[in-house]
Simulated assay, not measured.
Amino acid sequence: MATNLNDPKFTVPENDVEQQTALELEHNDDEFDYSKRSQWLRAAVLGATDGLVSIGSLMMGVGAVKQDVKTMILTGFAGLVAGACSMAIGEYVSVYSQLDIELAQIKRDNERGNQNGVLQTPQQDKEDKESLPNPLQASAASALAFALGAAVPLLAAAFIKYDKARLGVVAAAVSVALAVFGWLGAVLGKAPVVQSSARVFIGGLLAMAITFGLTKLIGSQGL
């Protein structure tokens, strides 16, 4: 007896097929581990934000007492170089310490498994090594991101002649960049966008305002 494929009993409704496809796509998206991005994402976002806030605040502080654009640019550039080196070294040491701890834990787990007769398969060993933090990757990402963030206030100040306008442009450029970096970090890490962007934005504005105010106060006292 021939089977009629057009019989409603043997056909899959179009809506069911669409729902199944959507569920498969959603499942594949859920399987992607966004925590794998954490090694470089954390270092990159932290580095860029630190570069924006540190150099932006530094230049705002200098601009509060010095009207010379060369002084502001040289100060900002020195801060860029020093900050990038500091971020790279600090991130390398921090992540390498984390790597040592995780390697020691893996060694203890393997020894405990061997004692209990549970041997580590090559696939499991490979997965464990791939999940380990990379100090060089984190260090490079942190330094490059810091330099990228620090370049924003430097470029903003370089083409403005008048000191008051220059301060306003630097503050505006840093504020916009902070919002963008906060949004980008939230999107890449699948974190709440509004809260992440707001924290970075408000924190950066406070840092620049405090630096500008205190430097202006000290400068006005003739120190």
Rank of each mutant, 00 (worst) to 15 (best):
V170Q: 12
D163G: 09
S131L: 14
F10P: 08
A145F: 14
I210N: 05
Q67Y: 06
G222M: 10
A156C: 09
I202T: 11
P13I: 10
S54R: 12
Q120D: 08
M59E: 08
F146K: 03
S131P: 00
G117A: 02
L103R: 13
G79A: 06
L119A: 07
A143C: 05
L136C: 03
A143S: 15
V169L: 13
L217E: 04
A191I: 06
F159P: 04
K216R: 15
L25K: 07
V65I: 12
S197H: 04
L41Y: 05
F159R: 10
A186Q: 08
Q123P: 01
D7P: 02
R166N: 12
E127L: 15
L46K: 04
E127A: 14
F159S: 04
L5M: 15
S196Q: 09
L52M: 03
K9N: 13
T71S: 07
M60N: 00
E127W: 05
V176K: 06
F146D: 10
N114G: 00
A172V: 10
A2G: 01
V152Q: 01
L136M: 03
Q20K: 14
S197W: 02
V95I: 15
G222F: 01
F181E: 07
Y34F: 08
A2M: 15
I202F: 05
A64I: 10
D128F: 00
G204R: 07
N114I: 01
S38F: 07
Q19E: 06
S97M: 15
L205S: 02
G61R: 09
K36S: 03
A143R: 09
Q39E: 01
Q124M: 13
P8G: 01
G51H: 01
A151K: 00
L205R: 03
V93F: 08
K190M: 11
E111Q: 11
V176F: 09
D109K: 12
A48G: 14
N28A: 13
K216I: 01
V176N: 03
S54P: 14
A78K: 07
Q195E: 14
P13T: 09
F181C: 09
V12R: 14
L148C: 12
I89D: 00
P153C: 11
Q67S: 15
D109A: 07
